[in-house]
Each structure stands twice: as structure tokens, then as C-alpha cells.
Amino acid sequence: MSTLTPTAGTVPLPRPAPGRSMQAATTEPAWVRRSLIAVALIFLSLFLFVPLVAVFAEAFKKGIDVYVSAITDPDAASAIRLTLLAAGISVPLNLVFGVAAAWSIAKFDFHGKNLLLTLIDLPFSVSPVIVGLIYVLIFGLQGWFGEWLRDHDLKIIFAMPGIVLATIFVTFPFVARELIPLMQAQGQEQEEAARVLGASGWQMFWRVTLPNIKWALLYGVILCNARAMGEFGAVSVVSGHIRGQTNTMPLHIEILYNEYQFAAAFAVASLLAGLALVTLVLKYIVERRVRHQIRSAGDTVEAPA
């Protein structure tokens, strides 16, 4: 995040009149520029734009009726509900965790901080399939708590709790990662001032800290939510693929696709692709606010608006 700070303004040197020669010396000839732009756009088209367009094209290929019936099908509806539920539980939990982790890491100096930072990032480097596997090893029938869970008639694997656990794991770092650099840049002065002026801990948090981090918090939540709703590998291992019961949207897409119901699969996929686009738009808006907030944090201790 430190890389976001703007370059120091160049000292305006007296330049030889129209400045064209200087311009030419630090940029490329027009044909090079155009070819590079063309190469970049062709590459991005082949791997990004065309696939995105294809999702919507395939979804409406068989007409609007097929599309509507695919997304209103009871199994699809139950998959949508489960996906919303899983995201609805895991995102708030990771939000609370993210704030707690960022508070301790950004505002205090303690031993083992770097180790903790690395451990928070750890879930990003674990393959989703392995995430599913480790929960099976613990809660599955052969696992550590398998027998105990069976005796008490509790189901975690091949049921909703397993799906939620796997989702929490894969979206674990998102909120914390967005908050830590911002809160580090903001320092402690404002909170210390609030305390000195007699604010209680919670007053300080709600009135000083939270307004300062709200955009980054929202940004983290957006990313966390997108990943939570779209997670496939980890959820696939622990879900059991019971139609209408433990199928999330991505798993429902897989089933439809494997049954050669391509239009229906792409119809459900288009909902998730739409979510991805909304995520990108929100991300774009919020990112600019965060950049602004980090920049102003670098300046002076400004009065909260």
C-alpha cells in the first residue's frame, strides 16, 4: 500500500521552448505505442473480455424463457439461498476478525507481529481443495470428531456448517488485509486524543476509528463477499452435492454443466458474473476513496468531517 503515495512533483526546469523534443525523448514513437496497446488489448480480449461476453451470450442462447426457468428452478433457488446464507454468515465473522486483527496489528507494537501477519495471509496460499480436505479430516466420519458428532446426531461435513467453515477459511484474510495498511498509515494520534479527552473505548471506536476506516472496510467486505459467493473447490469437497440441500450456486452450475444443460448452467453462471461486475464497479469506486483516505492520512491529523 505504501506504493500508492504519489511521486514527488518534478521541479519545473526551464525547458527549450515547445518541449516537443523532451517529450519525444521519454516516450515511444507512435507506431510502437499503437502496437503495444493493440497487443495488450488482444491479449486481454482472448483471456478476459471474450470469456465474460461468452457467459452472457451462452446464457441467452436458447432464449429468455430457458434463462428464466433455469434461474427460477427450485434447485437453483435453493442453491441461491444456500450461497447467500453461507456468505451471510462468513462475511460478518471475517469482518469482526479483520477489525480485531487490524486493531491489534496496526495500533500496537508487539513481539511476533510479522509472524502473525504471515499467518493471516496463509489461507491465500492453501489450495481450496486442501481446505476442504482438512475439514473432512477433522469433522468427517473417519475424522477426529467424526464418531462424537455421529453419536450426537450433528452433521458438519456434507452439510451447511461444513460449507460455511470452508467459506470462512478461503475468505479469511480479505478484510484484515485491506484494513491493516490503512490503519498503520493513520497512526494512533487521533485515538489517543479521543482517549485523553475522556472517550470510552467504544466511543473512541465508533466515533473516531470507524469513520476513518469505513471505505477500506467496505472494500474488504466487497472482495470477501465476491469470493464467498463464488468459492468452488473448498465447498465442493465438503458439500456432498445433495441437490436442493447442499448445493451452492457454483456447485449447481457444475451439475447442470455435467448434465449437458449448457444454457441453464450459463444462466446461473451469468448471475455470478453479474455479481462479479458489480463487485468490480464497487471496487473501482471504493478504491479511489481508500486511496484518498490513505493519502490524507499521510498528511496531517485532520479533523474528522
Partner: peptide, 16 residues
């Protein structure tokens, strides 16, 4: 749009 692969669920990317 460069961030699309971060936001698009992998299963959707896969079938597309």
C-alpha cells in the same frame, strides 16, 4: 476489468 479473475467465480471462468 483486469481484476475480473479475482471477482469472477472460478467455476464460471471454467465453463466460459
Amino acid at each position: 476489468l483486469v481484476d475480473l479473475p479475482f471477482a469472477l467465480p472460478t467455476a464460471v471462468a471454467g465453463i466460459a
